[in-house]
Amino acid sequence: MKWAPVVLSAAVLALTTVGAAGAAGSLEAPVKATYLYKLVPFVEWPAGAFASPTQPVVLCLLGGDPFGAVLDQAVRGQKIGARAIVVHRLAKAEKATGCHVLYLSAPRALGAAEALQSAHGAPVLTVTDQAAGAGAVVNFVLRENRVRFTIDSRAAAENGLTISSKLLSLALDARAGR
């Protein structure tokens, strides 16, 4: 029986790795959907971003919806403190006001750049799939077949957001050599 935990752990590890390896297609979107709401607890919005302590966190998708029902299922029942998470799918960038998290699925899509621009300086956690430097706070990247992310601290600061050091320590550019 002594070997059982080891074998079991190895099996789980193998499964995950295999899953991640094949994620390029099928698993990438669900992982990103999960990460989207999981970012919320590690971010502190400036005072005034929420009207009340129970006001839900508004997660906005702009430029298409790569997640579909997966995201809705993931956030259902999730609570960040006393706040629930609601998902808004936006058609136009102008409607981005009122969002706390803004995910730009297709940065090159029309209006995405403008939307990013308009969110600059506003208390919005902007998330893209782009390489860093495009102006978003968090950028998802694929590294060794796993979904990782980079964090633009300057952009976060400009948006009045405080990113938890725990999150920062996981960001790629924060950890040299990874």
């Binding site: 992982v31 990460y35 999981k38 607890p41 590690f42 796993r146 990782r148 992310f149 938890s164 725990k166 999150l167 320590s169 996981l170 990874r178």
Partner: peptide, 14 residues
């Protein structure tokens, strides 16, 4: 307290 983010984002190395 230290492993929250690593767990949240499934960062096993961290």
């Amino acid at each position: 307290a230290t492993v929250t983010a690593a767990l949240a984002f499934d960062d096993r190395p961290a």
